[in-house]
Design a protein around this nucleic acid. Structure first.
Lengths: 198, 198, 198, 198
DNA sequence: CATGAATGAGATTTCATTCAT
DNA sequence: GATGAATGAAATCTCATTCAT
């Protein structure tokens, strides 16, 4: 698959590297072209414009990211396990891919709103996965049945995202994955029917 | 107070409006100057450069935002009440100030990293307030004593921030403050010592 | 005389200092005003515009410069002595007034052509003095009678000016006045009727 | 040779013309680009910035200027002949190239000191030629052996430069080259061992 | 398919000068 | 006479995109 459209992937990989190293505003098309070993004009044979490189980058990388998570979750039976797996995978993948973490958590957020809306579209399958976990939890009577699903989804995603962003900005001084159990415990508590606390 | 440094505040207010209406990249200094009814050059009597307008804007507006929250919280005795008040205030203030919500949730995030770091400094007092609530809850034995405070803080802030951002991006179709009780309930559950769930 | 129009002279002196220290393009009117301890607007009560400050500066300073030379020359009987005195005075005065040398030799030359033409007017009396010396030398049959006076004047002035400029640019590493006898000897030779060198 | 890097030379020639006609401060990059029939941005493919256009202009033009003189001098055996040739060439070349004379004698002197220092570097080979002539004259026992070479060089260059500048400022009303014999005579006299004038 | 030279629109900031107090 | 806050015109340079080869 990598050998189909080799230039296409060359350019995407070059873009990730260039953006991670030079920042969003320091990443000119010509710099990406040079890193990809193609001419500036060649970029435009594969991408409509600069914004399209970034959207495609996000599509490809987030696609893999989400696929990994989806696959891993299939193996889990309870909603709690699924959530735990998701958190570990989310943290794990971004821990592993240094450049990707910088690009998605810091640099790509500097894009303008039109690009951000497209990025949100790419994230939708991830949000759907989260929704699925929540619904599973409700069905399994592990989570409260009166949960407002979009709200819960925003809590979960907002929490994970904020934690990763903090970790990236603090130069990854601690192992991100170690945070998973604690986060998992808190999120499950948040969603679980409370015993009468007297 | 508004009459002290009137031009300074004129320019800040103009900047909020212009950025909310034209987007970060569509907000030229000359546009802000025209909206503020001053000459382009006048801007530079009050602000070192364009970035400094944005930092100042954030300082002034977030300063007020945080002060309001801090004051409201003083009246609350339990950590749970404090948290509820904070959520309501956070949502309430951004619901009320349409322009400010757009600017802080969407537009200012497009700034480059140097500006984002300055913005983070401005947010610190807010994070300190959150930490205070958590510690109060622990002391009052309402929250678990083994909480990882930075992590909890990131969960709380990430959750609220993601919810507001979603609300802004969906054109504020629902009353944001109505989300407060549900969020509060989930967050308190997340932090509360769980009964043995068998 | 200094107490008449005290502000006028304050501003001139401030301009010399500011230009010497900050360079021509680093010398804003506001900087000169601050150095002179007056308000920006006050400058315009004494000078029509910025260019006028510079012309006036040159008039005052070159006026003194030329007066000193003229007075010294009166005491000399032969053209050769007059020339020697002139050279010594020219070098001596610029050696003594560090700031003035920088301003006249380096900074003021960056002015535009309209200002340079005015500066040339101020220099005219100096050129007249040089012409006078040449004519005296011819009358005294010390210099050749077929000299092209404007040309000779340009040689003399061009030589002195170039030497001073080199001296200023090389950070005044050697005593400028020490060059006088050598220069004098060469210039006198240039103007003297040559013996048949067969 | 002109057809190598054609745009580069187009821009240089355009710069000379535009600066001669509009003055240093009236020569915007866009004006030079229009005169050169290229887009504004094209300038920056060949020159790092505006200052670099001016330095390059001076390098190219003075390079040719100096080469011509150097070549012409090779054919002369005595130092006196060399000096005469140099003067004639110096005057001749600037007489011929109207625009160049204005640019080098008047406009380029308005540049700031950093540019002037670079210009001085370009002039160095010319000064070396002058030094060579002086040394030849000494070796040939035509000139005095106790000459202070740097001083003599400054006299020669300062004289020629001042004369050309006067000629340019007076709108070239007389044929500059006609001055050569007179100047040559005076300079040779200045450097020649004097007969005892008793 | 690939190239890369050329394009040209667009915005921040400075600073001489004014004028109401 | 003196002030200094306010003015606003003006120009360099970048970089996404094109198109002839």
């Amino acid at each position: 698959m990598k050998n189909q459209k080799p230039k296409y992937h060359q350019i995407i990989e070059a873009a990730v590297k260039v953006i991670a190293e030079n920042g969003y505003h320091g990443s000119q098309v010509s710099k990406i072209a040079k890193e990809a070993n193609v001419a500036d004009g060649t970029i435009y044979l594969y991408f409509k414009n600069k914004e399209h490189i970034l959207v495609s980058l996000f599509e490809v990388k987030m696609g893999e990211f989400i696929d990994q998570i989806a696959k891993a979750i299939e193996a889990c039976s309870t909603a709690s396990d699924q959530l735990y797996t998701m958190i570990k995978m989310h943290f794990g993948q971004l821990s592993t891919d240094y450049y990707l973490a910088i690009v998605t958590q810091l640099e790509l957020r500097q894009s303008d709103i039109s690009l951000r809306l497209q990025i949100n579209q790419v994230l939708k399958p991830y949000l759907t996965i989260i929704d699925g976990i929540i619904q599973t939890g409700i069905k399994q009577q592990q989570f409260r049945e009166d949960l407002n699903i979009p709200l819960v989804r925003q809590m979960i995603f907002g929490t994970l995202d904020e934690i990763v962003t903090n970790w990236v900005m603090k130069d990854q001084k601690y192992p991100l994955v170690d945070m998973a159990p604690e986060i998992h415990r808190m999120l499950v508590s948040a969603l679980t029917a409370q015993q009468i606390s007297k």
